[in-house]
Amino acid sequence: MKVMIRKTATGHSAYVAKKDLEELIVEMENPALWGGKVTLANGWQLELPAMAADTPLPITVEARKL
Results as ranks from 00 to 15, higher is better:
Ala17Met: 14
Lys7Asn: 06
Val26Ala: 05
Lys18Asn: 14
Ala63His: 03
Val16Thr: 04
Lys65Gln: 13
Leu40Trp: 03
Asn30Ser: 10
Arg64Leu: 12
Met51Cys: 05
Asp54Ile: 06
Ile25Ser: 02
Arg6Val: 09
Pro56Trp: 07
Pro31Gln: 10
Met51Ile: 08
Arg64Lys: 13
Leu48Ala: 00
Leu24Met: 13
Ala50Met: 14
Ala63Tyr: 06
Leu24Val: 13
Asp54Pro: 04
His12Thr: 07
Glu62Val: 14
Met28Ala: 13
Leu46Gly: 01
Pro49Asp: 03
Glu29Met: 05
Ile5Asn: 03
Val3Arg: 01
Ile5Arg: 00
Lys65Ile: 15
Ile59Cys: 10
Tyr15Gln: 08
Ser13Met: 13
His12Met: 11
Ala41Gln: 08
Thr60Leu: 11
Pro31Thr: 09
Glu22Tyr: 11
Lys2Val: 14
Gly35Trp: 04
Val16Ala: 05
Leu66Pro: 05
Leu33Cys: 07
Met28His: 12
Thr60Tyr: 11
Pro31Tyr: 07
Ser13Cys: 14
Thr55Ile: 07
Glu29Asn: 05
Pro56Arg: 10
Leu33Ala: 03
Ala32His: 14
Gly43Lys: 02
Ala50Ser: 11
Glu27Cys: 13
Met4Ile: 14
Glu62Cys: 15
Glu23Phe: 15
Gly36Lys: 03
Lys2Glu: 13
Lys65Arg: 14
Ala52Arg: 10
Tyr15Leu: 10
Pro49Phe: 07
Val16His: 05
Trp44Ser: 00
Lys18Pro: 10
Leu66Glu: 04
Thr8Tyr: 09
Ala14Glu: 00
Gly43Arg: 03
Glu22Ser: 09
Val16Tyr: 14
Met4Gly: 04
Glu62Lys: 10
Lys37Asn: 08
Val38Thr: 00
Pro49Lys: 01
Ala53Thr: 10
Thr60Ile: 12
Ser13Ala: 12
Leu24Thr: 12
Val3Phe: 03
Lys7Ala: 10
Met4Ala: 07
Pro49Arg: 06
Ala14Val: 15
Lys65Gly: 09
His12Ser: 03
Pro58Leu: 06
Gly43Tyr: 04
Glu22Ile: 08
Gln45Trp: 08
Val38Tyr: 04
Ala32Met: 13
Asn42Met: 04
Gln45Asp: 06
Glu23Ile: 15
Ile25Tyr: 00
Lys19Val: 15
Glu47Asn: 07
Arg64Gln: 11
Ala9Pro: 13
Asn42Tyr: 03
Ala17Trp: 15
Pro58Arg: 04
Ala53Asn: 10
Leu24Phe: 10
Val3Ala: 01
Glu47Gln: 13
Leu66His: 07
Trp44Thr: 04
Thr10Met: 13
Trp34Tyr: 01
Thr10Arg: 13
Leu46Phe: 13
Ile59Val: 13
Leu33Tyr: 02
Leu48Arg: 01
Ile25Lys: 00
Ala32Asp: 14
His12Glu: 02
Met1Asn: 04
Pro31Ile: 09
Arg64His: 10
Pro58Ala: 02
Tyr15Ala: 07
Met51Asn: 05
Met1Asp: 05
Glu27Ser: 13
Pro31Val: 10
Trp34Gly: 01
Glu47Leu: 14
Trp44Gly: 00
Tyr15His: 08
Val61Arg: 01
Thr55Met: 07
Ala63Leu: 08
Trp44Asp: 05
Glu27Lys: 11
Gly35Glu: 04
Ile5Trp: 02
Lys2Pro: 09
Ala50Gly: 08
Pro49Leu: 05
Leu48His: 01
Lys65Ala: 12
Leu33Ile: 09
Arg6Gln: 10
Ser13Ile: 13
Ile25Thr: 01
Ala52Pro: 15
Met28Tyr: 12
Thr60Met: 11
Gln45Arg: 12
Thr55Asp: 02
Thr8Met: 08
Val26Tyr: 04
Ala17Cys: 15
Gln45Met: 13
Pro31Leu: 09
Met1Thr: 08
Gly43Asn: 03
Glu27Thr: 10
Gly11His: 05
Pro49Gly: 06
Glu22Phe: 10
Ala50Pro: 13
Gly36Phe: 05
Met4His: 08
Ser13Thr: 13
Ile5Phe: 03
Lys2Ser: 12
Met1Ala: 05
Glu47His: 10
Ala63Met: 05
Leu21Arg: 11
Thr39Phe: 07
Ala52Tyr: 07
Ile25His: 01
Ser13Glu: 07
Ala41Lys: 08
Lys2Asn: 10
Thr8Glu: 06
Leu66Tyr: 11
Ala41Arg: 07
Pro49Thr: 04
Lys37Arg: 13
Pro49Val: 03
Met4Val: 13
Glu23Arg: 06
Ile25Asn: 01
Leu46Asp: 01
Thr8Ser: 09
Asn42Trp: 06
Ile59Trp: 07
Tyr15Ser: 08
Val61Leu: 07
Pro56Met: 11
Lys18Leu: 14
Arg6Asn: 09
Val16Met: 14
Ala50Cys: 11
Val3Glu: 01
Tyr15Cys: 09
Leu57Ile: 06
Val3Lys: 01
Gln45Lys: 11
Met4Cys: 11
Asn30Thr: 09
Leu33Glu: 02
Arg6Cys: 11
Asp54Asn: 11
Thr39Gln: 07
Lys65His: 13
Val61Cys: 04
Gly35Phe: 05
Leu57Met: 08
Ser13Phe: 14
Ala52Met: 08
Ile5Leu: 05
Met28Ser: 13
Lys19Gly: 14
Ala50Tyr: 14
Glu62Ala: 10
Tyr15Glu: 05
Lys19Pro: 10
Glu22Pro: 04
Asn42Lys: 01
Ala41Ile: 04
Lys7His: 07
Trp44Cys: 12
Ala32Leu: 13
Thr39Cys: 08
Trp44Met: 09
Lys18Phe: 15
Thr60Ser: 09
Pro49Tyr: 05
Lys37Tyr: 12
Arg6Tyr: 10
Ala50Gln: 12
Val38Ala: 01
Trp34Ala: 02
Lys7Phe: 07
Ala50Glu: 12
Arg6Ala: 10
Asn30Phe: 12
Val38Gln: 00
Trp44Glu: 04
Ala32Gly: 14
Glu23Tyr: 15
Trp34Pro: 02
Pro58Phe: 07
His12Tyr: 15
Leu24His: 11
Leu48Pro: 00
Lys18Trp: 14
Leu48Ile: 06
Lys19Leu: 15
Lys2Gly: 06
Leu33Ser: 03
Ala52Asn: 09
Thr60Gly: 04
Arg64Glu: 07
Pro49Ser: 05
Val61His: 02
Arg6Asp: 06
Lys37Met: 13
Asp54Ala: 08
Glu47Lys: 10
Met51Gln: 05
Ala14Met: 13
Leu66Met: 11
Lys65Val: 15
Leu46His: 03
Leu24Asn: 12
Ala9Cys: 09
Ala53Cys: 08
His12Asn: 05
Thr10Gly: 12
Glu47Val: 14
Leu40Ile: 02
Pro49Gln: 03
Arg64Thr: 12
Ala14Arg: 02
Ala52Gly: 09
Pro31Phe: 08
Ala41Cys: 06
Ala9Val: 10
Glu62Arg: 12
Trp44Phe: 06
Asn42Asp: 02
Arg64Pro: 04
Asn30His: 12
Tyr15Thr: 11
Leu46Met: 08
Ala50Phe: 13
Val38Leu: 03
Thr39Asn: 04
Met51Gly: 02
Val16Cys: 14
Thr39Val: 11
Val16Asp: 09
Lys7Asp: 03
Lys2His: 12
Leu33Phe: 07
Glu62Pro: 08
Met28Pro: 00
Glu23Trp: 15
Asn30Ala: 07
Pro56Asn: 08
Met4Lys: 08
Met1Leu: 13
Val3Asp: 00
Ile5Gln: 01
Glu22Arg: 07
Leu40Arg: 00
Ala63Gln: 02
Gly43Glu: 00
Lys7Gly: 06
Glu47Phe: 13
Lys7Thr: 06
Ala50Arg: 11
Asn30Glu: 07
Val61Gln: 02
Lys19Arg: 13
Thr39Glu: 05
His12Ala: 06
Ala17Ser: 11
Gly43Val: 03
Arg6Trp: 09
Ile5Ala: 01
Gly36Ser: 05
Asn30Lys: 11
Ser13Asp: 04
Met1Gly: 02
Gly43His: 03
Val61Gly: 03
Glu27Tyr: 14
Leu33Asp: 03
Asp54Gly: 10
Asn42Leu: 04
Glu22Gln: 08
Val61Asp: 00
Trp34Ile: 03
Lys65Asn: 12
Val16Arg: 00
Glu27Met: 10
Val3Gln: 00
Glu22Thr: 11
Ser13Lys: 09
Lys65Ser: 12
Arg64Asn: 09
Tyr15Ile: 10
Met28Gln: 13
Leu21Trp: 13
Asp54Val: 05
Asp20Cys: 14
Thr55Gly: 04
Lys37Trp: 15
Gly43Leu: 03
Ala52Asp: 13
Ile59Thr: 07
Ala52His: 10
Gly36Pro: 01
Leu40Ala: 01
Glu47Pro: 00
Leu40Met: 05
Val16Phe: 15
Ala41Tyr: 06
Thr10Lys: 13
Ala63Phe: 06
Met51Asp: 01
Thr8Val: 11
Pro58Cys: 06
Val61Tyr: 00
Thr10Leu: 13
Met1Pro: 02
Leu21Ile: 14
Thr55Val: 08
Arg64Ser: 08
His12Phe: 15
Glu62Leu: 14
Thr55His: 04
Pro56Gly: 07
Lys18Tyr: 15
Asn30Ile: 06
Leu40His: 01
His12Pro: 07
Met4Ser: 10
Gly35Ser: 04
Glu29Val: 06
Gly11Phe: 05
His12Cys: 07
Gly43Pro: 00
Pro56Ser: 09
Glu62Asp: 11
Leu21Ala: 09
Leu57Asp: 03
Glu29Ala: 08
Val16Leu: 14
Ala14Leu: 14
Met1Ile: 14
Glu29Gly: 05
Met28Glu: 03
Ile5Val: 08
Val38Ile: 14
Met28Trp: 14
Leu46Val: 05
Trp44Ile: 07
Ala63Asn: 02
Lys2Asp: 09
